[in-house]
Amino acid sequence: MTTESPSPIKARHPAADAIAMFFKNIPAVVALIVLTAIILAGIFGPIFYAADPYDMVWAPFSPPGEEGFIFGTDYLGRDLFAGILHGARVSLLVGLSAAAMTVFIGVTIGALAGFFQGWVEEVLMRITEFFQVLPTLLFSMVIVALFGASLPVITLAIGLVSWPAVARITRAEFLSIRQLEYVTASRASGMKPFGLMFSIILPNAAPPIIVQTALMVGSAILFEAGLSFLGLTDPNVVSWGQIIGSNRPYILDAGYTVTLPGVAIFITVLCLSLIGDGLNDALNPKLRQR
């Protein structure tokens, strides 16, 4: 029988351990703080620093710090700091919504393929492979060129080229979890297929998907920057990549106009990678002792 003394044990959700583990990882926590600051700057910055990034406010190419413009001005005399603040909003928004879309498509397809198997899996995985072998940059450029350079189209283009990775991870997790006994037990308890998929298997398959998502936000931001650099962007909204792209010809005369938005991208993506790494260590404790 229950032999140990009846001292009340507190219920500890398995996720609580993961969160505790994450907060022990100092680089990941620092990255989380920095990223939070960047997100807050993206959301509230334009309200407090109400300068229009398209206004010509001063002489072109005035270096950082001059005349109160802390990041200086670009080749048209526009305030670079305002550009980076406004750009943060756009870059993060594109990154997050592209990642959300990636996860939505990838998880749906991967879950269906891994759960139902048979011909469903065959068909869905062939489709996934089709998208996976497309040259990503070229394919997204074609989409943007066809449907016009607006933020929703760019988000869609990034989402469409990056979901196969998530679909494959989800399928692999579903394949291994669906044959565990607790899934059979739930089936014996009379649970219906969609209940099994979404309330039993998916929560247990979540850790690697969450890690992949964090990394996906970073790569979506990079992707958006790449497309904007090539000029495939909405000309009416500022993004970091677009600032770099438009100032590109003056890189030798005024390096800071390219470097500063580049640094912003670098820091954001680095933070996302560190957070993704931290999540990976926290959520997959078995891999931790490397």
Binding site: P14, A15, Y182, T184, A185, S186, I200, N204
Partner: peptide
């Protein structure tokens, strides 16, 4: 393996 680790 027969108990779902995420449920009470």
């Amino acid at each position: 393996s027969s108990l779902n680790p995420r449920l009470t």
